Amino acid sequence: MGRCGVALQPLVDALKQELLTQPVLHADETPLPMLKPGNGKTHRAYLWSYCSTPLSSMKAVVFDFAESRGGKHAELFLDRWRGTLVCDDFPGYEALFKSGITEAGCIAHARRKFHAL
């Protein structure tokens, strides 16, 4: 499996580079169990997903595995990208919005913001 991952990494890197040319992206993070080596127990890791919009001519999703849900993972993935990010109300995205990325919440996010008013 490791060899396959290494062989496919250039393709993933090229897809990520192309995805980051899009003006609008969707992002989400999904928890998944990860076996902690040496102790036989699992802990919560995250699979971050970044995808183009349904209106984009390029349909793509890039998954980025991380051992935590820290917003630093989204910051590292998106790096210097500046566009509109569609995401939920997870506070980990806040630093991105302060750095110049435009926030566009999903429906549930918009409902929470509206009810808070």
Rank of each mutant, 00 (worst) to 15 (best):
T21W: 09
L78F: 04
C106A: 03
M58N: 11
L85Q: 03
I101P: 00
Q17L: 10
I101T: 06
K16G: 11
S56F: 02
K36H: 12
G100H: 06
R44K: 15
A7D: 14
H109L: 06
R80M: 08
C106P: 03
D28A: 05
E75H: 12
W48C: 01
K98H: 06
E94I: 10
A45T: 00
F63G: 05
D88A: 04
G38H: 02
T84L: 04
G38A: 00
V62H: 06
G70I: 06
G5V: 15
G2I: 13
V86S: 07
A108D: 06
W48M: 00
G5N: 15
L96F: 03
E67S: 14
L47N: 03
K59I: 03
I107E: 14
S57K: 11
P33H: 01
E103K: 12
L11K: 11
L11R: 11
R3Q: 14
R69D: 07
V61H: 02
M1C: 12
S56I: 01
T42D: 05
Q17Y: 07
G2T: 14
K36Q: 13
A27L: 10
G83M: 09
S49A: 09
L11P: 08
F90K: 07
M1Q: 13
Y50S: 00
V61N: 03
C87A: 15
A110E: 14
F97I: 00
V6R: 15
E103N: 08
V6A: 15
T102E: 09
A95H: 11
G5K: 15
G40T: 01
D64I: 05
A108M: 07
G2H: 14
L55V: 09
L20A: 08
F97S: 01
D89W: 11
Q22C: 11
R80S: 12
M58L: 11
L55E: 13
I101S: 02
L8N: 12
L96C: 03
L35Y: 01
F77V: 07
L8S: 13
P23Q: 12
S99Y: 01
Y46N: 01
E67T: 15
S68Q: 08
D64M: 05
F114Y: 11
S99P: 01
T30L: 06
L78S: 05
L32Y: 04
M34S: 05
T84S: 05
